[in-house]
């Protein structure tokens, strides 16, 4: 029983990180109809900024997270205007190559700036140790992670469903021509959505720095997991990827615990079967 709850808890914490990083990818890929393999770059950068501000400048954790989120969102906005927008409507192959190129460049720059080794995050005291929760000793950091994650998600879902910005995104995902014809400035919308998505990824990268270690190999190493969340969830939505992320976080954690000799085999086989069964992700299942 204790084991089950521990796995549940670690799985949800892991899934939460995956969700925060991947949700922006789902929205931008669905919105702009592009394949972007380089999304992990923004999470990595968020992680580096957070870790550097904390470890070297003594900036408090939450402030460092916010700084990473904002700086990366600005960078995302600029990159969208400068580079990404030239890729809309191009072949899938071009988009794949471009994003691999971006991964290489950012990984190389990260290596030049921070060296090849992983940057350990020095957690503030209030996040260290264990707390008792439902009669269980749970690591404070992960508990905070889950709580913080739910807060962000609540804000995000509310914004997506209730604000004009959210409505515009949903309308444009559904039908771009129609959205343009009713006067939605899709150019601006794309840039803002991209900035938001990359900012969230940075937040996830910083918040999860103790789970997914911040190193130059980050974007390549975890890319498959971010893409799995998007592909299994389905494009252009923010709720289905949550389900997918939690599912994958739980499955991966449980599998590593109970069947360490099987490792990640299970998760890839699982994804393979799900995508063959539901090529458009679990959104397709919900619709049918």
């Amino acid at each position: 029983m204790t084991t089950a709850i521990t796995i549940l808890f670690f799985g949800i914490a892991y899934g939460m990180i995956l969700y925060l990083i991947s949700v922006g990818l789902s929205v931008t890929m669905g919105l702009m109809n592009i394949v972007n393999l380089a999304h992990g770059v923004f999470a990595m950068l968020g992680g580096y900024i957070t870790v550097t501000l904390m470890n070297h400048l003594g900036v408090p954790f939450l402030l460092a997270l916010a700084a990473g989120c904002v700086l990366v969102a600005i960078l995302g906005f600029v990159l969208e205007r400068l580079l990404y927008r030239h890729l809309y409507g191009r072949s899938e192959l071009d988009q794949v190559l471009f994003s691999i190129g971006l991964i290489f460049v950012s990984a190389a720059l990260a290596r030049i700036a921070w060296g090849p080794l992983a940057q350990p995050i020095e957690l503030p005291d209030y996040l260290k140790g264990q707390v008792e929760f439902l009669g269980l000793e749970l690591p404070t950091y992960r508990l905070a992670l889950v709580g913080f994650g739910f807060a962000v998600i609540a804000g995000l879902w509310f914004g997506f469903d209730r604000t004009l910005f959210g409505a515009r995104i949903r309308a444009t995902v559904n039908n771009r021509e129609m959205a343009q014809s009713v006067g939605i400035d899709t150019d601006r919308l794309f840039a803002l959505a991209f900035a938001l998505g990359t900012g969230l990824a940075a937040l996830g990268g910083g918040l999860g720095a103790d789970v997914l270690a911040i190193a130059p190999t980050y974007p390549l190493q975890y890319i498959i997991y971010f893409l799995i969340v998007v592909a299994v969830g389905g494009l252009g939505d923010i709720k289905a990827p949550f389900l997918a992320a939690i599912l994958i976080g739980l499955a991966d954690t449980a599998c590593r615990y109970f069947l360490p000799e099987v490792g990640a085999i299970f998760i890839f086989a699982f994804v393979f079967v799900v995508l063959i069964w539901l090529p458009a992700g679990i959104m397709q299942w919900r619709r049918s």
């Binding site: 580079l83 191009r90 071009d94 691999i100 190129g101 971006l102 991964i103 460049v105």
Partner: peptide, 8 residues
């Protein structure tokens, strides 16, 4: 990476 981006 730069070559790839320029190529595309």
């Amino acid at each position: 990476g730069i070559i790839l981006i320029v190529l595309v």
